[in-house]
Design a protein around this nucleic acid. Structure first.
Lengths: 316, 316
DNA sequence: TCAAAAGTGTTATCCTTACACCCATGT
DNA sequence: ACATGGGTGTAAGGATAACACTTTTGA
């Protein structure tokens, strides 16, 4: 983080924060630093032509990762950020897609599965067990107010967001869920003000690994954006190797969306949109009938990038 | 704009830029300054708790407008911005919805219809005549390259974005259209580097009123965001008076989307979602059968804000 | 009577989702 | 044989778009 002092009334320091995502062996991973409790960040240098190129240059120099798709997430400038000493820093956050690599260079960073930070978000094999504990916590929080209307409101929000009482699970609402848990005091980061020392240690397992400042919130923002994006924009391919089977592609989508996908429909949708083409080769792996290998048709991308793409949502 | 000088290597000045939108008499309008060639902007003050509140405070103090829905658009920091003297300024742009008012206070600002800046975007009463001129300009540009593949690519992009050759018109692609016109040199702003003096005067009518720097681009970003948003989020009501007829509501949506809407389906969709309730009164205006007056049900909003809303798209 | 807008009912179409089933390979 | 994954066909359901038509007012 940048620690220089603002010199004039209007001048501030500008930081870039990156949510760098890769999918390895069907698991979504994010690049972290500092004991896997922080997102990589660095000062914005005047030399750069633009913010985007600034981020690119910085990431590629530090990590030597081939950065594919990049998209701006959000700009924060808070004293309401958790840091106590909070300088006046503007943080511009970015989402970047790449492929996992040892992260060479002088940079000390490591990949970590993103569901370690949001264990309640992985619905690929059904509703995860952590939901139960959160349900109890949220119920307690909902009761913990005098106002009758407020109680109803809290229960209602919790039900909609977490899929209680026959509400559908909507994977795109990850940020709203995180904020509800934060509001309910179930997230370690929310307790920093009160008991900063204890927070990390005493956090229950169900609420996931914590991060510094509001980094977990930024991560949630990135995941939400990505989960929304894959439904109408073919960015998944940025996370895939050059050739792949359709099941590998499906597993990648499932990893990101955190929910199962209907196989036959998924295949039809992909092929019908002409986003991929057969390489002619077969893959012998994964005990079963050999699968055709496909490659992404970059050519269509240019055109389709404008129009948009669809991926099937629901599954078994 | 902020003109202070950066003092340290990492420090920059931060500006807020606002796209303030209102809909009056069925026409979408945007607040402008400087001979209606600039969006209102101002320095970000350290005193503010957050960017959002900074923008709110600043807008309400300067213009005395009741600012409703506010959403961050994008953060720029370019030397590639058109300004030659370009200091290192970070510009954080916002979209804000309000109702048109004289804009009191010491601020000199005026409302202007946004289709003055994008005449080709108004398809409410069919394809606007300006499209013809743009079509010729784009065709000329497409031919103006040696590379055969590039020629095809240019024609293809122009057709997709502007609805040539049986392509559907997609109103959300306003930013992409603007950028294509910019790339083709058909936009006054694009000529600033070459012949800065002539640009404004010589611009053909079809390409709309120009703005300073990249303000027209920012405006396009705001419109695009709003056009996308109204389809799944009930923000239209921020632009409506307290009570309104369903046709007024429809006209408002049409103004924003720049395309006609199917009346019967629109009504059903609105009522079925329980977003509005009858006031019991009738409106006698607009020569015809009196229309029921409705009011927005703020109560549902809270819940629905999470889930999302749909508005019908196409029309006659 | 006609124009203009408010409304209602119904049908056609398409897209999404789901179900059922067969194929090819390794153990 | 059977488990695992690959792959195809088709039907049910719901949402969207379109069409046709009635109602109520003012000029």
């Amino acid at each position: 983080m940048n620690t220089t002092t603002p010199q004039s009334e209007h001048d501030v320091a500008a930081d870039l924060i990156a949510v760098l995502v890769a999918v390895t062996d069907g698991d979504p991973r994010v690049l972290t630093i500092q004991d896997e409790r922080a997102l990589p960040s660095g000062p914005f240098q005047i030399a750069h032509r633009s913010l985007q190129s600034g981020l690119r240059a910085w990431v590629e120099r530090q990590t030597r990762l081939p950065l594919g798709y990049v998209e701006q997430l959000y700009t924060f400038a808070d004293s309401d950020r958790a840091g106590v000493t909070a300088q006046h820093v503007i943080s511009i956050s970015y989402l970047g897609l790449t492929r996992e690599q040892p992260a060479a260079g002088e940079y000390v960073a490591s990949w970590r599965g993103w569901y370690d930070y949001f264990p309640w978000e992985d619905h690929r094999v059904g509703v995860p067990p952590q939901i139960d504990e959160l349900k109890r916590g949220l119920a307690a929080w909902a009761t913990n107010t005098e106002d009758r209307a407020e109680r109803r409101n809290r229960r209602q929000r919790a039900a909609m967001l977490f899929g209680f009482d026959d509400h559908e699970w909507n994977e795109e609402l990850i940020l709203q869920r995180y904020e509800l848990l934060y509001e309910a005091g179930l997230i370690a980061e929310a307790k920093r003000g009160a008991s900063s020392a204890l927070a990390k240690a005493s956090a229950p397992v169900a609420t996931g690994r914590s991060m510094i400042l509001d980094h977990r919130r930024i991560l949630a923002t990135g995941i939400a954006r990505l989960r929304a994006k894959i439904k109408y924009h073919p960015v998944v391919f940025e996370l895939m190797p050059d050739t792949f089977t359709l099941l590998q592609l499906q597993r990648c989508v499932e990893a990101l969306a955190g929910r199962p996908v209907h196989k036959p429909n998924f295949r039809r949708l992909i092929e019908q949109q002409e986003l991929v083409e057969e390489t002619g080769e077969l893959s012998q792996e994964t005990g079963g009938r050999p699968a055709k290998l496909f490659r992404f048709r970059g050519a269509v991308f240019a055109a389709r990038a404008i129009a948009g793409t669809k991926l099937p949502v629901s599954g078994a």
